[in-house]
Design a protein around this nucleic acid. Structure first.
Length: 108
DNA sequence: ACGGTGACACCAG
DNA sequence: TCTGGTGCCACCG
């Protein structure tokens, strides 16, 4: 089980219309300090729509994806809006309003 | 093994 | 707010 595969598993669980931060994904796979690696894992998906990568944003509630402002970041904005998530002109999102909380790994 | 590279997160000023 | 610096760690050559 590679790090990337674990990231994919977690991201697949994000429900439609919800978002999570890179750090949340990292914590969910047991690597609370691995936010940057999550970003790396998603960039390697290279447009794979079988994984809802667009539901992952940074903890500030902003689209953190790199690239030409005319292309990829706006694509993510488009996907999010298609799920009813409001995204401002400057790629900002009210993350606390849409944040999904993964179920705890441990039983209570 | 080693050093450079990042879709991050957090803190100081 | 916004910028810059730091810690972080999987991957690649």
């Amino acid at each position: 089980m590679t790090f990337k595969q674990q990231v994919i598993e977690v991201v697949r669980k994000i429900p439609r219309g919800k978002v999570v931060s890179y750090g949340q994904v990292a914590a969910a796979i047991g690597s609370p300090r691995g936010a940057r690696q999550v970003g790396w894992a998603l960039h390697t998906l290279d447009g794979d729509h079988s994984v809802p990568w667009w539901r992952v944003i940074n903890n500030e509630g902003r689209i953190s994806i790199k690239g030409n402002m005319m292309s990829t970041p706006l694509l993510q904005k488009k996907f999010l809006e298609s799920e009813g998530i409001k995204v401002s002109k400057n790629l900002e999102i009210d993350i606390e309003k849409y944040r999904h909380h993964f179920a705890s790994l441990l039983p209570m």
